Amino acid sequence: MLPDKNYLIKLAHTKMPYGKYKDRYLIDLPEYYVVWYNNKGFPKGKLGDMLKQVYELKLNGLEYLIRNIQKQYPK
């Protein structure tokens, strides 16, 4: 199932709310950090769902899709 357009726009503009990478766009988190979350377990809720999506995007080399959305739909 494909994520809807509004979800992808929200994902493109969501920033990490805490920790070492606070205020960094999720898509800009280092790959090792997202892999660490995948191994440790993602947080519950929307943030966890978005981090899972970022993991899949990075795993498949598709970060450019989210960066294109950031350019097309500036916040």
Rank of each mutant, 00 (worst) to 15 (best):
R67Q: 12
R67N: 10
D4S: 10
L57E: 06
K15G: 00
I66D: 00
L51R: 00
L59A: 11
K52W: 07
K75W: 08
K58W: 04
N39K: 14
G41N: 10
K71A: 10
L57N: 06
N60R: 11
K58T: 04
H13A: 06
K58P: 03
E56W: 07
I69P: 01
N60I: 07
G41L: 07
I66L: 07
P17N: 14
Y32S: 11
Y55S: 02
Y64D: 12
L62A: 14
P3A: 09
P17H: 13
Y18I: 03
Y73E: 09
Y7I: 01
E63S: 12
K75R: 13
G61E: 08
M50H: 04
Y37A: 05
P17T: 13
Y37V: 04
V35I: 10
L47S: 06
K20R: 15
G45K: 08
P3V: 05
Y55N: 03
M1H: 12
L29P: 06
Y37C: 09
Y25V: 09
H13Y: 11
N60E: 11
R67K: 15
L65S: 08
K71L: 10
Y33N: 04
Y32K: 11
M1S: 14
Y55L: 05
Y73V: 10
N60P: 06
P3H: 14
K10Y: 12
I69Q: 01
M50T: 03
I66S: 01
K75F: 07
L65A: 12
K44H: 13
L47D: 05
D23A: 11
N39A: 13
L26D: 00
Y18L: 05
K20P: 03
T14R: 03
H13M: 09
L65M: 14
Q72E: 14
G61A: 11
Y25D: 07
K15A: 04
P43N: 09
Y25R: 12
N6W: 09
R67W: 07
E31W: 06
Y25F: 15
W36V: 08
I9C: 03
D4V: 08
Y25S: 09
L29I: 14
D28Y: 09
N60Y: 09
D4F: 12
P17D: 13
E56Q: 12
Y32V: 06
L59E: 13
K15V: 07
K10H: 15
D28E: 15
Y33E: 08
V34H: 00
W36F: 12
Q53A: 15
Y73H: 13
A12F: 01
E31A: 09
I69V: 13
K44R: 15
Y55R: 01
K15R: 14
Y33K: 08
P30N: 02
L51C: 01
Y37P: 00
Y7L: 03
K10L: 15
Y21G: 02
